[in-house]
Design a protein around this nucleic acid. Structure first.
Lengths: 118, 118
DNA sequence: CTTTTATATGAGTATAAGCTCATATAATTG
DNA sequence: CAATTATATGAGCTTATACTCATATAAAAG
């Protein structure tokens, strides 16, 4: 008997706020289900070092990303892999940008999103 | 073979931005899978008329909500019902705030969200 | 037609978000 | 330890967001 209370709404809003920037999504998709160093993220996203670090901060501080240091490199990973699945299904893409696997569940793509894709 | 391009990222970011406010979520959950007049939304959310109309605008203009006038009332509905399912599963609540139906699929609740729920 | 009810909107404001620049810290190498 | 590579952070700027107030429009009722 779980009620929809204030806390859940606030948490959901915070989660969506964390995801409401294209560069943040680029970064998260770049990490995917692996561990990526900041350098790798910079290379794969073509964003500046400062901007990547700038966006990594709130993602890390919120707990959405986890970090692990290995020598001079800091590796980032998505704390909740389910989030990647969610993003992949919402984006309507497959993990490697190839044909969708009909066997795995995917949320129906948000149709109305297409009006923004021009 | 669907690639993750700029347009998809931007669309996703816009979608999340639309959902990144607790009052917007309140409004969307209040509408749910039904058609609700602005008055009903005001009553169920306890938000001011101006604030409700203020938030309804971007939701409507983005296409996320659809409107229909009946006499003096304007009824709002969620254009893509799948969105409601998504929100319900992310929030970890059942449509009526009761026990979750084990038969229907639900995305695993984002565990890390709990750190925000205090 | 005037009044009332339902809803929308423009203007103004305070706060937050996204970004860049310069600089700081952390670990590695020479 | 000095220099280099990897990453983080504070300050400052610009734009966007969330909100309120006053007012406007739309339909219905009297």
């Amino acid at each position: 008997m779980k009620l929809l209370d204030e806390k859940i709404l606030d948490s959901l809003a915070k989660l969506f706020k964390l995801l409401s920037d294209a560069n943040r999504l680029r970064i998260i998709f770049a990490i995917g289900k692996e561990k990526k160093s900041v350098s790798e993220i910079i290379n794969e996203t073509s964003l500046s070092q400062t901007l990547v670090s700038f966006h990594l901060r709130p993602l890390r501080e919120s707990g959405l990303l986890a970090t692990e240091r290995k020598g001079p490199f800091v590796y980032y990973s998505v704390s909740e892999p389910g989030l990647i699945d969610l993003l992949i299904s919402l984006a309507g893409v497959s993990p490697k940008g190839e044909i969708e696997d009909k066997g795995t569940f995917m949320f129906p793509p948000m149709r109305f999103m297409q009006r923004w894709m021009k």
